[in-house]
Amino acid sequence: MDNITLGRYIPLDSPVHRLDPRAKIGAMLLMLIAIFIPAGWIGYAIIFAVVTFMVFLSKLSFTYIWKSMKPMLFMLVFLLIINVLVVHTGTVWLELGPIKVYSDAVIQTLYIVVRLLLMIMITTCLTATTKPLDMTLGIEDLLQPFEKIGVPSHEIAMLISIALRFIPDLIDETGRIMKAQESRGVDLKEGKLNEKIMAILSLIVPLFVSAFQRAEDLANAMEARGYQPGVRRTRYKVLKLKGPDYLLLAGAVLVLACMIWLAYFK
């Protein structure tokens, strides 16, 4: 359970950590769009260079990034196999008995791999350097314009931030319940189907019971401290864009423009 690294906030002090979450979310979206513009290998090289620079600035270790990508490896192998079986264009590079490996199959897989890799690096740059609460504040602010068409941006942000707040607690709880049931002879790895169903039930029912208890406690605590949903409240954390934030956004726009130029105007 404690090996999950993907999407976790890493408390460090770096220029990237100090950036405004709105700027980071905005830049991330721009970069994600950039990835999907078919700008060829030169384009990917540019994006890769920019993202590597960001990882370096954020003081995250590259082994950490590598670790967060590991779970994807299996998926990539799977993708390669599918592509090899399905794609039959280009030149034949390799013949394995009845299976012919075409160049396009390999190249297409590589494209996907590179895209995925970049996507993970970019999102990690955001999630690892932005406190969950700052993230929700950013989302709240970005959703503000949609309030007029009935999007309850504040409630959404509150919901997300509470969910985020309780994820570590629920992970702990899951671990505890698992251990308690294992102590009662539950085998989560082996066993017949009906035993497996029982095992899963013995985990899920207590988790629900405890989650409901938590929700009730939390609702009481929030109400007791004067929270009324839908009523105006002031906000402690006010976000303000500063020089580096504009720089980041400008950089992201530049990268995107660069990709568009490479893809359509060169």
Partner: peptide, 14 residues
């Protein structure tokens, strides 16, 4: 179950 904010500061601010 009564710690609402994500840091001490935020919780007092709530």
């Amino acid at each position: 179950n009564q710690f609402i904010g994500s840091t001490v500061r935020d919780d007092i601010a709530f």
